Simulated assay, not measured.
Amino acid sequence: MEKLSGDYYVYPGATDRALRRYRSFLEPPGRKPRYPQNSQCCCRGCSFDDVRHARDVLADVLQQLPARARGELRRHVARLDDTYRARTLPDPFADRRPWRSDRWWRRRLAAGRDSG
C-alpha cells in the first residue's frame, strides 16, 4: 500500500516510522501532560518531529489499507490514541485558531518542543 500511495508522506516505511514516533512520544513515564512540538520543516524526514504529523500519516494509511489490515492497525492506533488523550490537554482555543483542524489530535495544546 505504501508503495502504491500517491501521498508524499506515505512512502515505504512511513507507517512503521509513524507508529514508532507516536509510541516514543507517549513512552516517558509519569502523569505530567505532554505537549506536541511543531516540526522545523515539512520534508518527509523532519515532519515526523511533530507527533501530530505521525498521527496524520496513520490516519491516511488507515484510509488506504484493505479491510483486514485496516482493522488490525486501527486497534493498535486506538490504544495509542487513548494514551494520547490522557497525556495531552485539549486546546480551549482550538475553534479560534486559523487552521481549525477537523482532526482531534491537532486540537490539543502544543509547545515549541516535546515536553512533559
Rank of each mutant, 00 (worst) to 15 (best):
A67Q: 09
P28L: 12
P66S: 11
A18G: 06
R68S: 09
D91I: 03
R113I: 08
R52C: 15
A111N: 06
V51Y: 01
P28G: 11
R21A: 13
D114M: 01
D60H: 07
D60G: 05
F25E: 13
D7T: 04
R74I: 00
R74P: 00
P92D: 09
R70I: 02
R74V: 00
E2R: 02
A14C: 08
V77Y: 05
Q37S: 14
Q64S: 14
Y22V: 08
C41K: 08
G116F: 11
R97G: 11
Q64C: 02
R103T: 05
Y8F: 11
G13A: 04
V57S: 08
S39F: 00
R106Y: 07
D114N: 12
D91A: 03
A59W: 14
P98L: 07
M1Y: 15
D102K: 12
P66G: 11
A78F: 05
R97M: 14
W99V: 15
S101K: 08
L62G: 04
R23L: 02
D95Y: 09
R107P: 02
P66R: 11
Y22P: 01
V61Q: 03
Q63K: 09
P28D: 05
A54Y: 13
D114C: 02
R97K: 14
S47F: 04
V10Y: 03
R96L: 13
L19K: 03
S24C: 02
R100A: 10
L65S: 05
G116P: 14
S5R: 04
K32Q: 13
V10K: 01
R68M: 06
A67M: 03
K3M: 12
M1K: 10
R100S: 06
G112F: 02
D56E: 12
A67K: 12
R103N: 13
P12C: 07
G13L: 04
E27N: 09
D49Y: 07
T88S: 13
R17W: 02
A18K: 03
R20N: 05
D16G: 15
L62I: 10
L62C: 07
P33Q: 01
A14D: 05
F93N: 15
A69W: 02
T15L: 12
V77T: 10
K3Q: 10
D50T: 07
R68H: 08
